[in-house]
């Protein structure tokens, strides 16, 4: 076994770097237990000072930004004398730490564990994809990567052709979720149908949403489109899938309408409105890609 406290460098100028590595590594718990033993602390930790009594807000901010290098040695020694504070300090730097902390070297055991979990996740994700992901026409799982240029070009071509039949489509008005032919029942699966609507939804992010009037117009159109989606038959979906989809659409429409109302009344800025509506559209796209089984 490695006793952590024996690894404390003899050269005290190296203590900040040593402690930083303990905080981001896999053995902090071991170190704390050992410190408790040598400090003769009660197991309840009740005798410990809280972190706020050892480090000021300003010091915590400095640590988050640039590590322990600027913290005086007596303060570091106080931390070691109050082992529980190391847990609090760790949480602080892991959550609030800047790029400095991402560059502190971690031990090989932690790296190995991270890779092992990554493998397990990939395996379980692969299984999920096989059972849940929407499939394309050729039966292969479709990807969720951003649309390729070729894909965008294809969609653009379809849209151009679609202009011709635009007014022939009773369910097509607006220009995000009202794409011509969007609701046609010509797909091989419900997943493909939902993916088509999700892809149309993604075009939201290509729209000019920089100014309030443009964003308001876009929100009005999208709200209108949502209503069309709510009222449509969705023959490509099972009754259960349709119920799920309509419920979701009502929720999203409500969010778009609320954002529009707030923007119109001036209670939120255009930036906030854009952020809120972007998030709603992001959720819409994600939900359609995950499907009702997610």
């Amino acid at each position: 076994m490695t006793v952590r406290i024996i690894t404390i460098p003899d050269d005290q100028t190296q203590w900040p770097g040593w402690l930083e590595q303990q905080l981001v590594g896999s053995h902090l718990r071991d170190l704390i237990e050992e410190l408790r033993i040598v400090n003769g602390l009660d197991s309840s930790f009740q005798a410990n000072k809280p972190l706020g009594e050892i480090l000021t807000e300003k010091q915590l901010a400095v640590i988050a930004q640039s590590g322990l290098g600027n913290i005086r040695l007596p303060v570091i020694q106080q931390l070691l004398s109050n082992p529980k504070t190391l847990l609090d300090l760790q949480e602080h730097v892991l959550i609030n730490g800047g790029s400095y902390w991402r560059n502190v070297p971690v031990d090989s055991q932690l790296k190995t564990s991270v890779e092992r979990v990554r493998s397990k996740l990939a395996t379980s994700r692969g299984n999920d994809e096989l059972s849940q992901r929407p499939t394309s026409v050729d039966g292969k799982p479709s990807t969720t990567k951003r649309p390729s240029l070729a894909w965008v070009a294809s969609v653009a071509a379809i849209l151009l052709i679609g202009v011709f039949v635009w007014r022939m489509q009773p369910h097509s008005s607006g220009h995000i979720l009202g794409t011509p032919g969007l609701l046609a029942n010509n797909t091989s699966s419900s997943a493909e149908y939902l993916e088509r609507i999700a892809s149309a939804g993604e075009t939201w992010f290509q729209e000019d949403r920089s100014e309030a009037p443009k964003l308001m117009a876009l929100l009005e159109d999208t709200s209108h489109d949502c209503q069309i989606l709510i009222d449509a038959r969705h023959d490509a979906l099972t009754p259960e899938e349709r119920d799920w989809f309509v419920t979701k659409c009502r929720k999203w429409k409500g969010e778009f309408d609320a954002t529009l109302a707030s923007l119109k009344s001036g209670t939120i800025t255009v930036e906030t409105a854009r952020s809120q509506s972007d998030l709603t559209m992001t959720k819409l796209v994600a939900a359609l890609r995950s499907g009702p089984t997610a």
């Binding site: 905080l23 981001v24 590594g25 896999s26 053995h27 902090l28 718990r29 704390i32 847990l87 760790q90 949480e91 892991l94 730490g97 902390w101 991402r102 971690v106 932690l110 790296k111 564990s113 991270v114 979990v117 990554r118």
Partner: peptide
């Protein structure tokens, strides 16, 4: 980006 800090957090607890 975040797996390592998350795991460090969990390992300590």
């Amino acid at each position: 980006s975040l797996a390592s800090p998350v795991l460090a957090f969990l390992a300590a607890r």
